[in-house]
């Protein structure tokens, strides 16, 4: 329940299921979070199975999910265009609006993360799938990435 009142108005809520742990989809998620942040939305991100790996301390994410044959082209373009890393997008969105990032407990365990200390600072808590379903039910915008 993170709906704050801003100027007496309830802020719109976005719930994101982040299933993917690949650079391309994490970057897309980061861009979407930026848009939500510009709009002052309340955002809850639920990191599911494959997504959790990217949030474990010390693990580097290098895969891309889409067009794997064009990985070099994609990564070079990100660099040439001076696009922030997905972590920077997430961090910036958290600075600008209320973004909470929850790791699904099962997903964490799969990649060796069981306690908050195992995860990077972006993570707010570890949660169960029930909370994701409730959040999605209340959301104005619901995305699965």
């Amino acid at each position: 329940m993170i709906n704050d009142l801003k100027g007496g108005k309830k802020m719109a809520k976005m719930t994101m299921a982040l299933f993917s742990g690949s650079v391309d989809k994490l970057t897309a998620a980061g861009v979407i979070l930026s848009g939500a942040a510009a709009d002052d939305m309340d955002v809850e991100v639920f990191v599911l199975l494959m997504g959790a790996r990217a949030f474990i301390k010390g693990k580097k994410t290098e895969s891309i999910a889409e067009l794997p044959d064009h990985k070099e082209e994609f990564l070079k373009a990100l660099e040439d265009l001076n696009i922030p890393s997905w972590q920077d997008f997430f961090e910036q969105a958290k600075e600008l609006t209320n973004v909470k990032i929850y790791i699904c407990s099962l997903a964490g365990k799969i990649w060796g993360g069981e306690k908050m200390d195992d995860f990077i600072d972006l993570v707010d808590d570890i949660c169960g799938i029930g909370e994701y379903v409730s959040s999605a039910q209340e959301a104005d915008v619901h995305l699965f990435i």
């Binding site: 930026s34 848009g35 942040a37 510009a38 265009l81 696009i83 910036q92 600008l96």
Partner: peptide, 14 residues
């Protein structure tokens, strides 16, 4: 200038 979407929007928001 020099940033891509969503850079300008975030800059405006800030």
């Amino acid at each position: 200038r020099g940033t891509s979407c969503p850079g300008p929007l975030l800059a405006a928001k800030k």
